[in-house]
């Protein structure tokens, strides 16, 4: 589904990613872990099409189409979703109105009819239950005055409403208390299916107590230096990152 080959990424001439390779197949959940500033969010933003990055080398394909030439909205319409680390507030714009505009933009790109307000509300009511939010939530302005937990739950609400094939969750777990964390994890678990894939970017092993990843990768110095399964995550939790650094130095 997603194939990243030898991806190099620069911001203002500084190289952040130095040759990433990653294959994500339908149904898989990949976890990318790493310290602060290792380029985890850069990877998420490049996948979503943020334009302050340059890609001097490498390639990304999504469903066998090259992703890098597409606009962010085309990527979204083709089924790629980014749950933002810092969701953006849009004062004055009703959350429901925003979500409906997004659903209909995506439906339109697929040649489907736009949804009317009544059908849409009925659908969203169901989705709200899944993230344990009451209806007043969708009548508030987008992320404006939301608590940290509400913002992240709103991202998950958007995800399960827009029904993407690939969801990139950029530190969706950070800043959440344990209850909110469980709700978010549950939202993702319920949404998993053999067709849908995930890339979960995180600092902590904590959220993995509630999810079953297929692969765990460590991002360090702009590269995915180590890949494994849940056991790797447990090892990181126990020993931190420095042992990997030592391994790498030894290998040099």
């Amino acid at each position: 589904m997603l194939s990243i080959q030898n991806l190099h990424v620069q911001v203002e001439e500084k190289e952040i990613l130095k040759g990433i390779n990653l294959e994500v197949k339908p149904g898989e959940l990949h976890v990318i872990m790493g310290r602060n500033g290792t380029g985890k969010s850069t990877l998420a933003n490049v996948l979503a099409g943020r334009d302050k990055y340059t890609v001097p080398q490498g390639n990304i394909t999504f469903n066998n189409e090259s992703l890098l030439d597409k606009t962010p909205e085309d990527r979204a319409c083709s089924g790629l979703f980014l749950s933002f680390q810092y969701p953006v507030a849009i004062p004055g714009v009703n959350n429901m109105y925003f979500l409906k505009a997004a659903v209909n933009a995506i439906r339109k790109s697929r040649g489907q009819d736009e949804m009317d307000a009544i059908d849409f509300l009925a659908m969203v009511r169901e989705k709200l239950k899944e993230v344990a939010l009451d209806e007043s939530f969708i009548h508030r302005p987008v992320n404006d005055g939301f608590s940290g937990g509400e913002k992240k739950r709103n991202e998950i609400l958007q995800m399960i409403t827009l029904e993407p094939q690939l969801s990139i969750l950029d530190e969706t777990d950070s800043g959440l208390d344990i209850d909110a964390l469980k709700i978010v994890a549950q939202g993702v678990n319920d949404y998993r299916s053999p067709e849908r894939s995930f890339i979960l970017i995180t600092h902590y092993q904590r959220i993995l107590n509630y999810m079953q990843p297929d692969f765990v990768h460590v991002l360090m110095n702009g590269k995915l230096v180590k890949s494994g399964t849940m056991e790797l995550a447990n090892e990181l939790e126990e020993k931190g990152y420095s042992w990997i650094e030592k391994e790498l130095t030894a290998a040099d």
């Binding site: 979503a48 909205e73 979204a76 933002f84 849009i90 004055g92």
Partner: peptide
């Protein structure tokens, strides 16, 4: 109208032009 707001809308499938009018209409709602 921040780049962040526009990118957020784009990432949800909303074109830049529609995003601008969405944001401006929200601004003028009162």
């Amino acid at each position: 109208i921040g780049e962040d707001q526009l990118f957020y809308c784009n990432q949800r499938g909303i074109s830049t032009e529609d995003a601008v009018s969405l944001i401006v209409n929200g601004f003028c709602k009162e």
